[in-house]
C-alpha cells in the first residue's frame, strides 16, 4: 500500500498538530491561577507587627511598678475576633503568644515578679490582671479597570490591653496595624 504526502499540507499539518497539542495541554492542565491571591491576615506578618507591642510592654509603667503592687497574676484571655477574617484556635492563640511568649517579655515579667497563669488550668477570677487581644479590620474593594471589583485591601488593627480586675482600670495598652492587598477578580 502506498502512502501519499502533499507538500502544501505540511505547514497546515504542522500548524494543526501544534494547535491541537496546545488545546490538549490547556484543557488538561489548569486547576487554578498562579496569580491568585487574597488579603487574609497572615501569621507570617505577625512577628514584625507585634515587635513594637512587645517593646511597649517591656518598657511599660505596668511592668516598672509591678514589684510595688504585691502579687500580680496575669491571665491571657482568648482573642476577640472583630475582623472580617476567620482564625483557627491555634492562630488565635498565636496572636496572644507572639507577645507574651517572647523571650524579652518573659524576662521582663519574671524580673517584675509578674506570674503568667495558664488559661487551661485557671479561671479568670484567679488572676489580678487580664491580658486581652482584639483584632479588627476594614476592607475596601475597588476596580483597577473601573469595571468589575478586582482589587481588595484589608487593614487589620491588633489591640492589646492589660486590665486590673479589681478596678477595671487599664494598666497598659498598645496596638499595631497590618495591611494586606490582593489583585484579581473577587468574584472569580
Amino acid at each position: 500500500m502506498s502512502r501519499t504526502s502533499l507538500p502544501v499540507f505540511r505547514p497546515i499539518g504542522l500548524l494543526g498538530l501544534g494547535l491541537s497539542a496546545l488545546l490538549v495541554l490547556t484543557s488538561c492542565a489548569t486547576t487554578g491561577s498562579r496569580e491568585a491571591s487574597n488579603a487574609r491576615f497572615r501569621m507570617a506578618d505577625l512577628d514584625q507587627a507585634v515587635a513594637e507591642v512587645r517593646a511597649s510592654l517591656i518598657g511599660s509603667r505596668f511592668i516598672r511598678e509591678a514589684p510595688a503592687q504585691g502579687e500580680v497574676l496575669l491571665r491571657a484571655e482568648p482573642l476577640t475576633n472583630l475582623s472580617l477574617d476567620r482564625f483557627t484556635v491555634s492562630e488565635e492563640q498565636m496572636v496572644v503568644s507572639r507577645v507574651l511568649s517572647d523571650t524579652g517579655v518573659q524576662v521582663a515579667l519574671r524580673e517584675a515578679g509578674i506570674r503568667l497563669l495558664d488559661p487551661e488550668v485557671t479561671k479568670p477570677a484567679d488572676a489580678t490582671h487580664r491580658f486581652d487581644a482584639q483584632i479588627r479590620s476594614v476592607a475596601r474593594e475597588g476596580s483597577v479597570d473601573q469595571r468589575e471589583s478586582n482589587a481588595r485591601r484589608d487593614a487589620y488593627l491588633l489591640e492589646y490591653q492589660i486590665t486590673e480586675r479589681a478596678t477595671s482600670g487599664i494598666a497598659w495598652q498598645a496596638s499595631t496595624e497590618v495591611a494586606r492587598a490582593a489583585r484579581g477578580l473577587v468574584i472569580d
Binding site: 494547535l19 484543557s27 491561577s33 496569580e35 491568585a36 491571591s37 487574597n38 490582593a182 477578580l185 473577587v186
Partner: peptide, 24 residues
C-alpha cells in the same frame, strides 16, 4: 472563596477550550 483571580490565567485558554475544561 476569599482568594481573588483564581481564573485569571485562563482567559487565553478560554478561547481554545470549553469553560468547564479550563476554569476552576
Amino acid at each position: 472563596l476569599r482568594t481573588q483571580g483564581l481564573n485569571a490565567n485562563n482567559s487565553p485558554d478560554l478561547f481554545l477550550v470549553n469553560e468547564q475544561g479550563v476554569r476552576f
